[in-house]
Amino acid sequence: MAKVSPVMLAPPLIFAGLAVLMFLGLQREDPDALPSALEGKSAPAVEITQLGTGATFTDETLRADGVKLVNFWASWCAPCRVEHPQLEALAKSGIEIYGVNYKDKAPNALKFLADLGDPYKSIGADETGRMALNWGVYGVPETYVIDSNGIIVLRFAGPITQRAIEQTILPAIQDAQAGL
């Protein structure tokens, strides 16, 4: 009987390991959802600078009465353009949205808002990406639903679509309003 070398065993063992990982990954509730260690916890510190002449927001703003959204975005982000009409609609419906402009040039960000409209109650710039890092942002756009106590109820990664509003964002807002 021929002796089996460790080099010959490696490919089948690697394949078996990958197959197990893939199987476990498919067992997740929503394979598209990115996990968030911050859901159910207090929102991290707000670390923004002023963008244009508009008012910025603070930690106290996020802990004030009412449910609010914090939206990380950038002018160079194509999906941010796609979600922008949905943000405008949410703002028109009375939902407070606070914008964090991520690693962007101020003139480009301000032109983006001038061209497409400004859905934000107030806004600031995260020029270094420090705030986004602390919040666990994977990439823009990313939106957080925050309750009246400053607790993150939902982290939504990717562009907000009408379907996302109906199936994910509005239910999270309603849960936050109900104090769940």
Rank of each mutant, 00 (worst) to 15 (best):
L154K: 11
I95K: 15
V145G: 04
G139W: 12
D147S: 03
D115P: 00
K103R: 12
Y144A: 07
G124Y: 02
R130K: 14
P85I: 03
I151N: 01
G129A: 05
S148A: 13
C80E: 07
K105S: 15
F112M: 13
I152D: 05
Y98L: 11
L110M: 09
A114E: 14
G136S: 10
L133T: 01
V153E: 08
L87M: 11
N149S: 15
A91C: 07
I146C: 05
L116T: 02
A114C: 11
V70C: 02
T143S: 13
L87I: 08
D104Q: 02
A106R: 06
G150W: 01
D147L: 03
Y120S: 09
S93A: 12
G117R: 08
I97A: 15
V140C: 12
S122H: 07
I146T: 01
S93Y: 06
F72C: 00
C80N: 14
N71F: 07
L154T: 02
I97Y: 14
G124A: 01
E127K: 13
I151K: 14
V137W: 04
P107C: 03
V100A: 07
T143M: 10
G94I: 02
D104H: 03
L116Q: 11
V100Y: 12
N71M: 06
W73N: 02
E88K: 15
P85Y: 00
I146Y: 01
A91T: 08
G99S: 13
R130M: 09
V140G: 00
P141K: 05
G124M: 09
A109P: 00
E83S: 03
L110I: 10
A74M: 03
A109V: 05
Y138H: 11
